[in-house]
């Protein structure tokens, strides 16, 4: 995982208001959101964002509403212009792009999936799926074939001639995903793509995305307000609050080492047994030979609890791709199930 970042955001600021440049110096000196609004009637959208997104990874940007996550994702394809900072894609700063190059970027390099689907209601499903290719000027037959291929891939074969309003929300979003995939762009921006769907369908869609990702290895930037979703999808998790990055890194790491009360609050409510993986709580093997069994590093703890039947005196050998990588003591597992904050002081409860 030491590949060069495909997309790299550096020192990005966004200020909304009448004259953002006039208040930029104060913001750069560290003026906060509330103070800026009170003194200068400008809203601080994003503050000093630095995020690297690696090729083939899913970067999840998580935050509550108003944290600036949708603003941030719209900076990547410049649907929103930043106040200052740089956004590099393959080493080129897209902010220097003129209209022509920007259009080229949007057509060939980045596709987008929207929270409210944003399909064209007057076009059939296959025409919608072929939209990205139509924009590039491909012939009707060519683009519809491509559209149908991707519709098939997301499980919508047979619905090509329907109109979006004839489909359920989950199916409409499948069209949205097919539309993004059909553009063959290496980067996919997903703006709360599953937030408008009900929980069961959402799980289906997450599975679909992970399954597609296994074959396609796109660079996905995924926005969500749902921590469970974030932990399920993320290779790299960025947590946003009031327009700045509170913590970013490997999701398991954030879960075990939250560096901010805000994140502690967040992580205290999730099912840790399901989210945490063996590799996050295992220790190196030092001389033990008495193992109760062998487990995979990517198994979640829930699986292990079931396996051990609740016996905390066991120790398992952990393997990854057939190699021994560590040992898992069931006691360590149980300790990991309790949030760090709760074990420090039993009075704290969110």
């Amino acid at each position: 995982m030491t590949t060069q970042p495909l997309v790299s955001i550096k020192g990005l600021y966004k200020i909304f208001g009448g004259n953002p440049q006039s208040v930029l110096p104060q913001v750069l000196k560290g003026m906060g959101k509330a103070e800026l609004l009170e003194k200068h009637q400008h809203v601080l959208g994003l503050r000093d964002i630095n995020v690297d997104m690696r090729e083939g990874e899913i970067t999840v940007i998580m935050g509550l509403s108003g944290s600036g996550k949708s603003t941030l994702i719209r900076h990547l394809n410049r649907l929103i212009e930043p106040t200052t900072g740089s956004i590099e894609v393959r080493g080129e700063d897209v902010l220097t792009y003129g209209e022509e190059k920007l259009r080229d970027l949007r057509r060939n390099l980045m596709s987008m999936v929207f929270q409210k689907f944003a399909l064209l209601p007057h076009r059939t499903v296959e025409e919608n799926a072929a939209m990205a290719r139509e924009v590039r000027g491909e012939t009707q037959a060519e683009r519809l074939a491509e559209g149908r291929k991707w519709l098939e891939r997301v499980g919508l074969g047979g619905f090509e001639k329907r109109y979006p309003h004839q489909l359920s929300g989950g199916m409409q979003q499948r069209v949205g995903i097919a539309r993004a995939l059909a553009s063959d762009s290496p980067i996919m921006l997903m703006d709360e793509a599953f937030s408008a769907l009900d929980p069961l369908i959402r799980t289906d869609m997450q599975d679909l995305l992970l399954e597609l990702q296994k074959d396609l290895h796109k660079t996905i930037i995924f926005i969500t307000h749902d921590l469970d979703e974030a932990l399920k999808l993320a290779d790299h998790l960025v947590i946003l609050k009031d327009g700045y990055v509170v913590q970013q890194g490997e999701p398991q790491h954030i879960l075990l080492n939250p560096n901010d009360p805000y994140i502690e609050d967040f992580v205290s409510d999730i099912n840790r047994a399901r989210v945490l993986r063996v590799r996050s709580v295992m220790q190196p093997i030092n001389g033990q030979t008495d193992f109760a069994g062998v487990v995979d590093a990517d198994d979640n703890l829930e699986h292990l609890i079931g396996l051990s039947g609740g016996d905390t005196y066991r120790t398992y050998k952990v393997q990854s791709n057939g190699e021994d990588v560590g040992a898992l003591d069931m006691k360590a597992l149980v300790r990991a199930l309790v949030p760090a904050a709760a074990s420090d002081s039993s009075t704290r409860r969110s």
Binding site: N77, L79, L102, R103, D104, L105, R106, R107, M110, S111, M112, F114, Q115, K116, F117, A118, L119, L120, P121, M131, A132, V135, R136, S183, L189
Partner: peptide
């Protein structure tokens, strides 16, 4: 949302 999608696809 739809016009934004139109922009996003270039």
């Amino acid at each position: 949302d739809v016009t934004e999608a139109a922009d996003a696809f270039g």
